[in-house]
Structure formats: C-alpha cells, structure tokens
Design a protein around this nucleic acid. Structure first.
Lengths: 139, 139
DNA sequence: GTATATGCAAACCGTTTGCATGGCT
DNA sequence: AGCCATGCAAACGGTTTGCATATAC
C-alpha cells in the first residue's frame, strides 16, 4: 500500500471517527486508496487483501464492511440474492450489473433522467430509488 | 380453494405445459386464483398453504417457485439480500418495497417515466431495468 | 485501564440437492 | 410403463456470532 493510499484510508476512517486499526487501514486503503469508487463483495475484498499480502480474517472483512456502511462510508447494493455488494459511493445513483460476470459498476448519474416516479401510498415517503441496469453481452 | 381459483390455476399451469399436480394446483390457486398479482417469498407462500389447510412441503414450494419462474409464469425480484421474492407479474415494471414490513408490491408502470437511461458500455445491451422505490413510514 | 476490534470456529438461515417414494400421462 | 414431481433430511454457501485475545485511546 502506497503512503498516499494509506493517508487516504486514514482520513476516510477519521472522517467518521472509526479507530484506525491495522485491518481497517488495509481495507480502507484498498477501497479508497486511489480515489476511485469501488464495488466489492466480502469475498472479493478478502481476496484483494491476500493479493496485497495483508492479513485480515474473512470475518473481520464482513464485520468491517458492515461497520463502514453503518458509519455512512459505504452503502450496500442489492443486485443478486446470493451476495452482498458494497459501494464506496454513497449517494443515490444508478448501477450497471453485468449478469454474466456478476460485476457491479456505477452508471453515470447524469445520464439517468426520471421524469416521473410512482406516487407512494398514503403515509409513506420515498427513502431511496434503486435503479439497476442489468446488462448482457451483445450479439 | 374455490372452483374458480382452481380453474385459474389449472389454466395457468396448462398455458406453459406444467403438469397439474395437487401441490402445484394448490400453489397456483393461491397465486393467481383471484386474478390479482402476488409477491411472495417461499416461506410466506408455504405459510399460506398451511392457512388454507393444504399440505405442500417447503422444499416443494422452493422447487415449484423456481419451476414457475423457469417456465415464465413468475419472475424473481431482488430487493433484499436475505430472501427471494417472486412476482406473478412478469413484465418489466417498478416495485414498492416497504423497508419496515419487508413487503413488496407493484408500482404503477404508467407513473414511471424514464426520460433517459445510462448508455451501456460497448459490447453490452440492456437486459432489464430494475426500479425499486424503497419506502419508509412518513413522520 | 477500559472499551473496542480481531480471529477463529461454530452457529445460522434461506435455499438447494440426493434419493427413495408416489403420481401424472 | 416411463418419466417427472414430491418429501424428507442432509448438504450448501454466504453471513453472523460467541468468546478469548489483542489493540487503540
């Protein structure tokens, strides 16, 4: 992990008051170390720590992704019943889901324009609108 | 199960050539017996069979929901990582998800107007656009 | 020193499956 | 008769948890 990635991870944790433990710094650096947004599964992130020669138990990856989400650093995205995806971008925005690869990416928010939305039933308000554009290989 | 519900269930199965076994007729009648669309989980539908004094094993409910979906009679809707929902309405339409109750309903398709959609990456095409309006109790 | 985080293994829970039995055509 | 569906219990896979140990403040 580069010094810059580490610093970004450190600031990221500090911004919400999470203790900068070794494991959290490893995960944070992998997630926001280059300033790009990431979409990870617990298994995938755990594999990434091994690639980076860092040691974090799988249980801690699960607990930490949950902690990051609870702290508002990430959001869980539900696109596939069998796995949880976590996104470092926390605003309400559309996603591409590549059905064959099981990969998730951001879609350009500016390209999505919802002219009208179904009216919520009496007594309810819209918490969030999830838009998932499911893709398949062309041809 | 009323004669009419049974008949609707029977026609529903026949329309895709699925064998009308006792268990499938029970489930089909509960699902489409009154001509309304339903959104069920396996557990929920299983509970409904017990309420109706019909006996279908939970495994068969799972297998049958899968069979109905494979046959195109239902579609799986992913809104909550912990459970699978199945919808008797099979066209592409928006849903309301009541986060507190864990309930899923159809939203009026006519009320949703998407003026523009993010452009798929080169080599991919849109298979389906899932729109889930997540609701919370107002106030 | 105290509260909190980590790691391991076991528990968990919704879902799927193997296999023997029973039912539809 | 032959193929397919059902039921049970066991397997499964992703996720969570209990508890002892280690770490941040």
């Amino acid at each position: 992990m580069t010094p810059e990635a580490l610093e970004r991870g450190t600031r990221w944790l500090a911004s919400v008051g999470l203790r900068p433990t070794r494991q959290r710094l490893s995960l944070a650096s992998l997630l926001v170390g280059d300033g790009q947004h990431r979409h990870v599964t617990a298994e995938g992130l755990h594999a990434a720590t091994l690639d980076a020669c860092e040691k974090v138990s799988l249980a801690t990856v699960y607990n930490t992704l949950r902690a990051f989400s609870d702290a508002g650093l990430m959001q869980e995205v539900t696109v596939d019943g069998t796995r949880s995806y976590f996104d470092t971008r926390v605003d309400d925005h559309p996603h591409f889901y590549f059905e064959d690869e099981g990969a998730l990416t951001d879609a350009a928010k500016a390209e999505l324009s919802i002219a009208s939305l179904p009216t919520p039933p009496e007594g309810y308000e819209v918490a969030k609108v999830d838009v998932v554009v499911r893709l398949r290989k062309k041809g």
